[in-house]
Amino acid sequence: MQSGLATMPAEELSAGKVRRRTPWSEGVRRLRKQKAAVIGGALVLLFILTGLFAPLLAPHDPIEQNLANTLQPPSAEHWFGTDDSGRDMFSRILYGARISMTIGIFSVLGSLVVGTLLGLIAGFYGKWIDTLISRIFDVMLAFPGILLAIAIVAILGPGLFNALLAIAIVNVPMYGRLVRAKVLGIKQEEYIMAARAQGMSQVRILFRHVLPNSWTPLIVQGTLGVASAILEAAALGFLGLGAQPPEAEWGKMLADSRDYITTAPWVVMIPGFAIMASVIGFNLFGDGLRDALDPKAQ
């Protein structure tokens, strides 16, 4: 890996124009050099913007039925065709991006916040509190992820918010363990001992020194986590445990249209492609972030 200095043109160096690069700007520079990460980032941005501006972009109402116009193939009027209720598939896909991005991003934020707090406490304070939190994580990780999410939604009842909550709860241990491991390493560093020696409070050390040094793996894992969360939300929607009709959620759209796979295959194919493209976007971007921000993890 070349340093920022090594890649500078000789004339700049000789003229004394040495710009100091922060680790972040160095990371962004490395990220922009990776084609796959740029494609991933563009896909992520596309889906987020689509979700944000769905009401402006959608040519039709996503839930308005038109029974005289059911299962129409893609055309100039309906770019992605219509579904079994005559609803415009293109508009539903656009609104679906809004739901998937919301669930993906907010569930990850939820599990990130809770997982980070628990990981910080466990790693920093150690002793019985670490044992307790770690054992809780072990138990949660003993369940296959989607199965635990199904169990949680079975308890709380089906619905979009409960699906989001279930996905967030299931993924808490992943972030918790990550932060705990990072904290255990940082705790022994000299600057933490120095902060202690200066009489800095435990909470201040945690939030001023330990947490900022744990950001990198969390950002990477969080980006990849959005990809998994989108897949999990679609799976719950497909099983009828997530979004409820007439919401335009991609997994639910797939489940509702599976009976028409022979007569109108596009109603099954298009939502699947949408899920896959958004997940590929977050996966590529996450992989690129890891390579750019954390070169040691390559």
Partner: peptide
């Protein structure tokens, strides 16, 4: 990146 249920379908 593929939803398993979509692949099945």
């Amino acid at each position: 990146s593929m939803p398993i249920f979509w692949l099945g379908l």
